[in-house]
Design a protein around this nucleic acid. Structure first.
Length: 887
DNA sequence: CAAACCCTT
DNA sequence: CGGGCAAGGGTTTGC
């Protein structure tokens, strides 16, 4: 089997300099026991790791300059003269850098008389000829001249972690020339850092203009006599020789006598032993322990467990089990509603029973084990396990520990869904990741060797079993035992039942809409093409911006990283400039509804005419749920055309209805509670319109009748801004006022709600001191970047410190309500089914006859979920479809 | 696979 | 100085 060959070429000198200066301010912190500076090696290692991760090369070469004298200095004495000498602190690291690369399994090379560039250029060309894809990483923009269809050049920007990737198209966009023309450009403009001259008074701008007109330097000089008299023409003629020499200097060699074969560059991973010794010599303790984990995992991978294979003849083994057991049902696909069930394991820290035949689970012996709440089970991902078993008509009971949920609560950043990853995160190295065993993407499959598969299952069971005590202890230390046992664990089962219930979708309704939207889109499309004078792909921002800003010459409002922005904000401003804009906005709107919500949703309907979403319970940083396949938390509501999608969501029986209740301003009520602000609390206790209340306060009005709709709108935005952790700039952008005005709004706000201000300051301080913030129910979010020197990162962490307790506590509250709700529905023998949760809203289906009961029951359960210093308010509605549920 | 865009609370 | 409100998911392009 031939796999895609991918060569990574690194301009070693350039990256080494970047690495050195990236950690220049902490130079003295990076010395080993011998006094050797190590900062460049340390930073280079981190850069290399992130490059390896994104490029995934099969072959690698790091090229270095061999010395100062090269064929270029022979051509031009002053080439690169005047450059500062390499700092001695960096020079001393050079030999160790090379040793590091050798330990890392990465080939390096240098060639007397040539620069690293030329080695890179030469190998890129050779590799391309052999069918490789090539990625070049450098800090030197001049290397973009090597860009081709199969070679991309990634240039480091701003420090070390960001790379800007150049393709021929990107060069064209940025400079308006082809990669091959770059040397001509350099020839004309020269280069101050490499110290070669070019043509007097010609810089990048003029050079690009000349190339746009003449195509090449050679052609320019063929026609230079025809230019009208100017200073530029004189300079061009006078400096002709200099220009051609400069061009030669800028030209990177692609035929240097590099004595390397491509096979020599194959990358086969690190030399563990050598690298360990090297890290020890460098005093790289963090890297060393990283390595120890990798090593330990590799070691246990080799050490097989003594599992037993279950058959229908030895099931008494399970019946006889007395103590708690780990249980895993294996699926290789994410979507457990549809994934093939590939096997299971039951075990503890001593014995493991495995099988690849899940029908065994349906035998009386195993069903009795799984459904008996007295038989304690430990799992990884309770909801997944429960839903999968439900497909076999087995009702899992007695699950008291979920490793995935526990790990998520301990640190929301631990959001891997892989058992191996999670185990390693907690210092347990006895189990590998699924990716290591099954592979990923198209190649994901059960191992050919069944022993490898069963061993992996057994190790999973052992890992869950052995990690339980440690994690429960940590939860206890965080005061999260209650959150874990009485909130998230029961919620997993509530969510599972909601997912299994699914919501019925009227496919015919969607198909009808699909036809209507198709006709409308075709009509708008024609009109757009007429105005544009040409056909193009309206869905392509790139093609669209070409039409708008180049063909139609509309003014550019905003740029993106790669070109012109065509976002709604931009288009809104261009509305009056051309009738095409309204059509495009219209097209975008309908096309979004069509592709995401009509066609997209149709694809997700199961044979039972329902969609079965999956709620991600261990993903968000705040404790909210998210929803996938399909996402039922972002069904359109704002715009009428989109809102009609909700007509396709119907009850499962004809004489049933959809019923919905939502919390009113739950986040602001949470804020009123935790800040203790009397003014804000009073507004809620007296059931006032909170946005109008805020408007009165910040605009200094004395009577609600004075509040205009616009004031209320601005006050509402300010309320939202406060919840998100306000900045004057953000607020000004949002409601279209000046930054100064926004600042006044915020000051007025804080004056009127003084304890809110005090709480905001306090929570940021708390985050700084303890490193995390908490919700009402002790959900925790760590904010390491609160100490960052980077303004952006630090500001973000500060806003997060303010937002997370608010958003997260609101999430806690509705989760409590959901658990109580299911209990109440059961107790009262209602047929109503809870189907969906949309952050502050619960959606049910129920017989029409039960609607009056629900109108009473649901709000009462929701508003009594917790007791706050202010009341919780709940609004309800019901109707024949989700669309018809209007409050 | 990243970027741009746009849908929700 | 300069940044660019919180939390998410899906589709499309264009590599």
């Amino acid at each position: 089997m031939k796999k895609n060959k991918k060569l990574l070429l690194i301009d070693g000198n350039s990256l080494m300099f970047r690495a050195f200066f990236a950690l220049h301010n902490v130079l003295d912190k990076f010395t080993n026991q011998d006094g050797l500076h190590t900062n460049a090696i340390y930073a280079f290692k981190n850069m290399l790791d992130s490059i390896l991760k994104s490029v995934e090369p099969t072959h690698i070469l790091v090229a270095f300059d061999a010395g100062k004298t090269t064929f270029r200095t022979a051509k031009f004495d002053d080439y690169k003269s005047g450059r500062a000498k390499m700092p001695s602190e960096l020079a001393e690291q050079l030999p160790y850098m090379r040793e590091f690369l050798e330990c890392y399994g990465v080939k390096w090379y240098e060639l007397p008389n040539f620069e690293a560039d030329d080695i890179v250029g030469t190998m890129a060309k050779r590799a391309e000829a052999e069918g490789f894809k090539v990625t070049i990483v450098t800090g030197d923009r001049d290397l973009t001249q090597l860009t081709t269809a199969n070679t991309t050049v990634a240039v480091t920007v701003k420090g070390v972690n960001q790379l800007e990737t150049y393709t021929p198209e990107h060069v064209q966009e940025k400079l308006g020339i082809t990669p091959a023309q770059i040397v001509d450009m350099k020839g004309l403009m020269g280069d101050t850092s490499d110290n070669y001259p070019g043509v007097t008074k010609v810089g990048e701008k003029t050079a690009l203009k000349l190339l746009a007109e003449y195509g090449s330097m050679a052609n320019l000089y063929d026609h230079v006599d025809e230019m009208k008299k100017s200073k530029l023409k004189e300079n061009l003629i006078n400096d002709k020789d200099q220009a051609f020499m400069s061009r030669d200097l800028a030209q990177i060699k692609t035929d240097a006598p590099v004595e390397l074969a491509l096979e020599d560059l194959a990358y086969n991973g690190v030399n563990l032993e050598a690298l360990t010794a090297f890290y020890k010599a460098m005093d790289f303790n963090a890297f060393l322990s990283q390595l120890n984990v990798t090593e330990a995992v590799a070691e246990t991978a080799a050490k097989a467990l003594d599992y037993q294979i279950l058959t229908k003849d030895n099931l008494q083994l399970i019946t006889a089990l007395t103590g708690p057991q780990s249980f895993t049902i294996e699926m290789l696909d994410d979507n457990y509603h549809t994934a093939q069930l590939d096997g299971f394991v039951i075990g503890d820290d001593q014995h493991w029973y495995v099988s690849n035949d899940v029908t065994l689970l349906q035998t009386p012996e195993l069903t009795a084990f799984l459904e008996n709440s007295e038989k304690t089970k430990y799992v990884f991902d309770l909801k997944r396990t429960y839903v999968a078993l439900n497909r076999l008509n087995i009702k899992l009971a007695g699950a008291t520990f979920d490793l995935l949920l526990a790990s998520y609560l301990l640190n929301t950043n631990n959001n891997s869904n892989d058992l191996g990853d999670v185990a390693q995160l907690h210092g347990y190295t006895g189990v590998q990741t699924d990716e290591a065993i099954y592979g990923k993407g198209a190649k994901r499959a059960l191992p050919e060797d069944q022993a490898v598969y069963f061993d992996h299952l057994a190790k999973k069971a052992k890992a869950v079993f052995e990690l339980r005590q440690q994690l429960m202890k940590e939860l206890d230390a965080h005061q999260q035992t209650d959150l874990f046992q009485n909130l998230e664990m029961p919620l997993a089962l509530v969510l599972a039942d909601m997912e299994i219930a699914g919501i019925t979708v009227d496919a015919q309704r969607l198909v009808k809409m699909q036809g209507e939207f198709k006709t409308r889109l075709a009509a708008i499309e024609t009109e757009i093409y007429t105005i544009a004078g040409t056909e193009f792909n309206i869905n392509s921002p790139k093609q669209l911006s070409q039409i708008l800003f180049e063909k139609l010459q509309l003014p550019v409002i905003k740029k993106t990283k790669t070109g012109y922005s065509t976002s709604v904000e931009v288009l809104e401003k261009l509305r009056t400039a051309s009738p095409i804009i309204d059509q495009i906005l219209n097209y975008r709107q309908i096309s979004k509804i069509q592709s995401t919500y009509v066609t997209g949703l149709l694809k997700q309907i199961h044979p039972d005419h329902k969609v079965h979403t999956r709620y991600m319970q261990t993903l968000t940083q705040t404790g909210r749920l998210s929803s996938v396949d399909p996402n039922l938390q972002n069904i359109p509501v704002r715009i009428e055309e989109g809102r009609q999608i909700r007509q396709a969501f119907v009850p499962r029986h004809p004489d049933w209805e959809i019923f919905s209740s939502d919390y009113s301003q739950v986040e602001l009520r949470v804020l009123a509670h935790i800040s203790g602000d009397k003014n804000m609390q009073a507004a809620f206790k007296e059931n006032r319109d909170i946005h109008a209340n805020t408007a009165m306060k910040i605009f200094g009005l004395s009577d609600p009748s004075e509040v205009t709709p616009n004031m209320r709108r601005q006050a509402k935005a300010t309320n939202f801004g406060i919840v998100y952790g306000i900045s004057d700039y953000g607020l000004s952008q949002n409601i279209g006022i000046t930054r100064k005005q926004a600042k006044q709004f915020i000051e007025a706000y804080f004056e009127q709600y003084p304890k809110v201000k005090a709480w905001m300051d306090e929570i940021v301080k708390t985050a700084r001191e303890q490193g995390y913030v908490e919700t009402l129910m002790h959900r925790r979010r760590y904010l390491p970047e609160i100490h960052s020197k980077n303004f952006n990162l630090r500001s973000f962490a500060e806003r997060t410190a303010m937002n997370t307790p608010i958003q997260g506590s609101a999430a806690d509250i509705i989760k409590v309500a959901m658990i109580n709700m299911v209990q109440k529905l059961q107790d009262s023998d209602l047929k109503a089914v809870m189907l969906l949760q949309v952050h502050d809203e619960l959606i049910f289906e129920a017989p029409k006859s039960e609607i009056p009961i629900l109108e009473q029951l649901v709000p009462s359960v929701m508003d009594s979920a917790v007791s706050l210093a202010v009341p919780l308010k709940v609004d309800s509605g019901h109707g024949a479809t989700w669309y018809d549920v209007k409050g």
